[in-house]
């Protein structure tokens, strides 16, 4: 399996492309923008976008859906039944879906909302805005942050240190680095 990162200036967000080594049906996670670089990544690797996974319904992570669907006959998967007016397959935390032979574990760490999903594919964790390198997502107030921090801390404790963390914004990380250096985790234990 191969994984590629495509940075979008629209919303300064990361979009991820996952597909088999020898090409074929592939998954795009959070396509904030459909730009020529993403198109070249897809085509140069002989991928066909069959599945679009959305961590959460915010513009920096869904802006490219319309163009993607003009080119590829893909299905959307998210925590909502509708994204940008397109039907979306409703998926739930603590479930596993099989997308063209790629097993995707659906998770949720924040404890505050079921709208924001995390996807685990092999040893890669696509965390959306829930967990970034050295940070957690933006939440409404201090009380919420405390609860979210507790909940994410509990969630990542169960995961192997070697798992790679791929957030929607900023650099990648590992579970070990987040356990060791994320100043917003393990504050309330």
């Amino acid at each position: 399996m191969r994984c590629f990162i495509n940075f979008s200036l629209s919303g300064f967000s990361n979009c991820y492309l996952i597909g088999p080594d020898d090409g074929g049906d592939a998954i795009v996670i959070d396509p904030g923008e459909m730009n020529i670089k993403l198109l070249n990544l897809i085509e140069d690797n002989n991928f066909y976008i069959k599945h679009i996974l959305i961590t959460h319904n915010h513009k920096p992570h869904i802006g490219g859906i319309k163009t993607l669907l003009k080119i590829y006959d893909a299905e959307i998967y998210s925590s909502e039944e509708n994204i940008l007016g397109y039907p979306s397959n409703l998926i739930h935390p603590n479930s596993t879906i099989n997308l063209s032979g790629i097993e995707v574990k659906v998770m949720e760490f924040s404890g505050q909302t079921k709208d924001t999903l995390i996807y685990k594919v092999e040893e890669m964790l696509f965390t959306g805005d829930t967990l970034g390198a050295g940070s957690i997502g933006e939440w409404e107030n201090k009380n919420t942050i405390a609860l979210v921090s507790q909940s994410i801390s509990k969630g990542i404790k169960k995961l192997d240190d070697s798992i790679l963390v791929f957030p929607s914004h900023g650099p990648p990380s590992t579970i070990k680095a987040e356990k060791d250096f994320n100043p917003e985790l393990f504050l309330y234990e």
């Binding site: 390198a133 590992t174 250096f181």
Partner: peptide
């Protein structure tokens, strides 16, 4: 780009005139 150096130690190192984007030097 998109490289993880978290938890590393750098002594007498030079990163002059470089393009270091979306990389993780935490800790």
């Amino acid at each position: 780009k998109y490289t993880i150096f978290a938890g590393s130690t750098f002594s007498d190192c030079s990163f002059i005139d470089s393009n270091i984007v979306n990389s993780n030097f935490n800790g």
